[in-house]
Computed example of a mutant assay.
Amino acid sequence: MKMQDEDCRTERFRSPVKTPLQWIILIAVLAAILYVFTWDEATASPPKPFGQIVHPNNTSNVKEKDTVLLIWFIPFGRKTQLKSCATEFRIEGCCLTDDRNAYLDADGVLLHHRDIARDMSNLPRLPRPVFQKWIWMLFESPHNSQKIPGLDDLFNVTMSYRADADILVREQLNPKSQGSEDLVPLEAKSKMVCWVVSNWNENYARVKYYRELKNHIEVELFGSHAGRRLSSEEYIAMMKSCKFYLSFENTLQCSDHVAVDYMTEKVYNPLRFGVVPVVLGPPRSSYEKFIPKDAFIHVDDFNTPKELANYLHMLNKDDEKYLQFFGWRKHFIVTKVDFPLEHACRACQYIRQRKGFQVFKNLSKWYWG
């Protein structure tokens, strides 16, 4: 009797024979469930559109030897059209994608610091494959970027404006293909000192310096603070009409680590348009890593703003001495950076060339001091 009961129970839970159609439906349902759970594990949030991808999100189309770089965040939420790294920068063998389902196959993951949640909840949830490199990217100053606990030993590679970063990406002076000098037309310069400023704070060192400087030389202000917003065309025309430009950063170096090498387009734009930048920011030695020492004027070279003003007045009257600041233009040209496409391509190039094991320790100490 007991044996009969056991047979009944066994028979009761035995699966009935399924037709081919039932097997197809069952397999489809199981595949859908598996996909949902796999996707939820691998991503902290749904993928966001990043514009045109070089390769389709289906990584089966990627060539066997291609290096796959997964762009985890849209930097600052900007939408951009991605183009071929080979076409734009002559970087071959790179596949850029924003498809987070490709996480386990990606050779590298590019993570923009300013988009990382403070609790790191929007980072990949799955463990990092041993072959994969995480690239930490930040181009804002430490003063304007929050320090996030837990990131110190998380990344393999750093990308920044700093000269000691693994991947250095910044506007810079590159050799010209031709040796002809790009002359600066003095007749077009109707203004002495110009400054475009929007972020105005009375506590900033640059504002305090300006308030003293303007007592000794005329400074023509532009930007939202002055109620004189400029279009792109107006900005270029304004630049070309000025002899000097106040390339004042809103962040100063306070130690050997904080704001090291931090300089923005504020210094490179004047150089591009034939203006002498008057810089306030990192020490002269930081600027000289990237710019010829006789291409700019540093406020630290003068004891007071009045001394600087006197020097600018002297240069304004001596064309020969003024034009000496542009000797570099015979050999170099200022190149812009295509953000974020160039950053992604440079990151892909780096990990393509360096497949060995790599770690980076103490990110907070290195960047924030």
Rank of each mutant, 00 (worst) to 15 (best):
H112Y: 15
H112R: 00
H113S: 09
H113Y: 05
H113Q: 11
R114W: 03
R114A: 10
D115G: 11
D115E: 15
D115W: 10
I116C: 13
I116S: 13
I116Q: 12
A117M: 12
R118L: 15
R118W: 10
R118T: 14
R118D: 15
R118F: 12
R118C: 09
D119M: 13
D119P: 06
D119F: 11
D119V: 10
M120K: 15
M120D: 10
M120N: 09
S121N: 15
S121E: 12
N122I: 09
L123E: 14
L123T: 11
P124W: 02
R125I: 11
P127E: 11
R128F: 08
R128M: 12
P129K: 11
P129L: 10
P129D: 09
V130D: 14
F131C: 03
F131K: 15
F131R: 14
F131N: 14
Q132N: 04
Q132D: 00
K133V: 07
W134G: 06
W134P: 05
W134M: 14
I135D: 02
I135T: 00
W136M: 05
W136H: 05
W136I: 03
W136C: 02
F139C: 00
F139P: 01
S141G: 15
P142H: 00
P142E: 01
P142S: 03
H143Q: 08
H143R: 01
N144M: 08
S145K: 03
S145M: 04
S145P: 07
S145L: 05
Q146H: 04
I148E: 03
I148S: 01
I148T: 07
I148K: 02
I148Y: 05
I148N: 03
P149N: 06
P149T: 05
G150S: 00
L151D: 03
D152A: 02
D152S: 03
D152R: 05
D153G: 02
D153S: 08
L154Y: 15
L154D: 02
F155N: 03
F155M: 08
F155W: 06
N156P: 05
N156Q: 13
N156A: 09
V157R: 02
V157T: 04
T158E: 08
T158F: 08
T158H: 07
M159K: 00
M159E: 09
S160A: 05
S160W: 03
Y161A: 11
A163D: 14
D164R: 12
A165Q: 03
A165N: 07
A165D: 07
A165R: 01
A165M: 07
D166A: 13
I167M: 12
